[in-house]
Amino acid sequence: MFFEETWLDIVARAAILSLIGVAWVTALIRLIGLRTLSKMTNFDFVVTIASGSLLAGAVQASEWTAFAQALLATGGLFGVQYLVARIRRNSEAFEEAIQNGPIMLMYNGQIVEGALDISRVAESDLFAKLREANVLELSQVRAVVLETTGDISVLHGDTLEDRIIEGIDRP
């Protein structure tokens, strides 16, 4: 691509293609927004993983066409993510079609066994999250929610506003 000497070409490709690839992804993130790297939804998570894979492919390209294809595919992924986010904001039906809902794993100090079964979360994992959130007594727990991102939120304290847990599945 750059030099006849193999070792020199490898070094130049690694440095130059990495620089261009990272600059391209940075420009896309600046243009489209930080949501590009979020994991707010399962779709966002897939785009983040795929963009990393495409960037790796771009910096390892041995031909300009492969390099360009990887960069254009990254731009396409980010563009699709932008469109999906816009549509989700304006269409509840679309939101429900592509997104899993959050699941209540605990409510008012009580473990929701059916939710653990459905979500395949082990009780030991639930207790680990409770310890991580500094819960000292199960009675302190207002709600534990398996979020759409796969994260587990632990809500504890004296009270819990209904609006915070509105729309969460309670199997």
Rank of each mutant, 00 (worst) to 15 (best):
A50K: 08
E132A: 15
G157F: 06
L146E: 09
A56W: 03
V144R: 04
S51T: 15
R163H: 12
E113G: 01
I111W: 02
A93M: 07
R35F: 14
R88C: 08
L77C: 06
I103E: 10
L37K: 02
R88K: 14
I111V: 13
G157M: 08
G101N: 14
L34K: 15
A50E: 10
P171L: 06
E5V: 07
T74V: 11
D158M: 14
I118R: 15
A85W: 09
G33M: 10
N108L: 02
P102F: 12
T36M: 12
I103V: 14
E92P: 04
V22W: 09
G109L: 10
L126A: 05
F94P: 01
D162K: 12
A73C: 02
N108M: 03
F2W: 12
V22H: 11
I98M: 04
T149S: 15
A15W: 06
D9P: 06
L28F: 09
I164Y: 09
A93P: 02
V80H: 00
F45P: 03
L83Y: 08
N100T: 07
A143R: 04
T65D: 15
T65L: 15
H156T: 07
E147Y: 11
V46R: 10
A27P: 01
P102Y: 12
V84W: 04
F3D: 00
A61F: 08
Q81A: 09
L37H: 05
D125G: 00
E95C: 06
L155P: 00
L130V: 02
F45W: 13
F78S: 00
R35S: 11
K39Y: 11
A58L: 11
R30L: 11
L17R: 01
R35T: 08
F127R: 15
Q60T: 10
T48I: 04
E4Q: 14
L77D: 01
R30C: 03
G157Y: 06
L55V: 13
L160R: 14
L19K: 06
I29M: 09
R88E: 15
E95Q: 08
G79A: 12
A14C: 13
A15I: 14
V59M: 15
S119Y: 04
R89V: 15
G57A: 06
V25P: 04
D162P: 08
A15E: 02
R86I: 09
N134Y: 05
L83T: 07
L55Y: 07
M104N: 00
S91L: 05
P171E: 02
A66K: 13
I49Q: 07
H156V: 03
D125M: 00
F3L: 01
E132C: 12
A122H: 11
N90K: 15
G157P: 05
L138D: 05
R131K: 13
E166G: 07
L126Q: 03
A85Y: 11
L155N: 01
D125Q: 03
D158T: 15
E147P: 12
R86A: 11
L105T: 07
T148V: 13
W64D: 01
W7P: 02
E96Y: 02
A128P: 05
E95D: 14
S91Q: 04
